[in-house]
């Protein structure tokens, strides 16, 4: 079965499985453990114009079926990324997505502009939804007008395909998705981590150095599916779904909810080769549930469009 995914601006994935940002480093780290060229794509760790230190440790804490993290977007900055990681990424035969972060609209635009010229980068994921930083980032992600401003400036800075990563930590995440599509976003990726907390009883302290953190893993899959479903029925651009995916069946759930491709993250820490296993099994699992093609599964569980539903309402 052909697993190719055609996305806007001629972005073509060889299959719908993308390594999620923040779980796959800047690329070279997993090269020893994963055949990266087999993946549909890789979204590298968030890149800011200048280096960011990140949050104090501890930065991870295990929870039931989940993982809390408070990394705080530590990254070496744009120049170091271009000098140290871009050369490796240029050698990959897969789609490389640059996840970009900033404290201000102009910082987002600066990274997009610099990487617009970098041949290693095929697309952008604008991260306005990381719950672990205080300034920037999330302040754009929870305000449709601010999100619109970020996306509009990024759109001016690059003609490469751009997706915006949406936060689940607000009542109506689709309002942000609608705003960034209005500003020129080609795709939506959803969801970022769910903000949460744990207490270390032995230390009588918050378990994470950053006090609160972002929850990922299977614990958030139902939250993610619901948001992907709601966004997919409201915007006309492709949705890249993520949140707790561990198996080809999980991928199928996201496809049926309306995602055209997915990102896989937390499970990679346990099983570095799980994404390859999912890609291998996906055609059989699609067939088992009666789908002749990948495309046929996308949105198959969607109820009638909102307009029709509203028309039926009393």
């Amino acid at each position: 079965m052909d697993l190719t995914v055609h996305l806007p601006r001629n972005l073509i994935l060889k299959n719908p499985i993308i390594a999620a940002s923040g779980t796959f480093g800047f690329g070279p780290e997993y090269a020893r453990f994963v055949d990266i060229d087999r993946l549909g794509g890789v979204s590298v760790k968030g890149i800011s114009p200048e280096p960011w230190r990140g949050n104090p440790p501890p930065r991870v804490w295990e929870t039931p079926s989940g993982l809390l993290n408070s990394i705080g977007l530590q990254n070496p900055g744009l120049s170091a990324f271009l000098a140290e990681d871009a050369p490796f990424l240029r050698t990959l035969d897969t789609v490389v997505i640059a996840n970009i972060i900033g404290h201000t609209v102009e910082e987002y635009a600066a990274v997009a502009q610099a990487l617009d010229r970098e041949p290693a980068i095929d697309a952008f994921e604008v991260n306005i939804s990381c719950p672990n930083i205080k300034a920037g980032g999330i302040t754009f992600g929870h305000d449709p007008d601010a999100a619109y401003q970020v996306m509009r400036r990024v759109r001016q800075a690059t003609d490469k395909p751009v997706m915006v990563k949406v936060s689940p930590n607000m009542a109506e995440p689709w309002t942000v998705a609608e705003a960034v599509v209005e500003a020129g976003a080609d795709m939506i990726s959803a969801i970022n981590t769910v903000i949460g907390m744990a207490i270390d009883l032995k230390r009588r302290q918050p378990a994470l150095g950053g006090v609160t953190g972002g929850l990922s893993g299977p614990a958030i899959k139902p939250i993610a599916l619901r948001i992907v479903y709601e966004i997919a029925r409201r915007v006309r651009v492709p949705v890249i779904g993520m949140g707790g995916i561990q198996s080809p069946e999980d991928v199928l759930e996201f496809l049926l909810a309306g995602a055209e491709a997915v990102m896989v993250g937390t499970i990679t820490f346990q099983w570095p080769d799980r994404m390859e296993g999912i890609i291998e099994a996906l055609p059989n699992v699609l067939a088992r549930y009666g789908f002749q093609s990948l495309k046929e599964a996308v949105g198959a569980a969607q109820r009638p469009a909102l307009a029709d539903e509203e028309g039926l309402a009393p």
Partner: peptide
């Protein structure tokens, strides 16, 4: 240190180091 991936990708298991800014 509490660790995530174990292979250098996730930046979870960090320790404060020089240079200090």
């Amino acid at each position: 240190q509490r660790m995530g991936c174990g292979i250098g990708a996730c930046l979870a298991c960090v320790v404060p180091s020089v240079p200090v800014g």
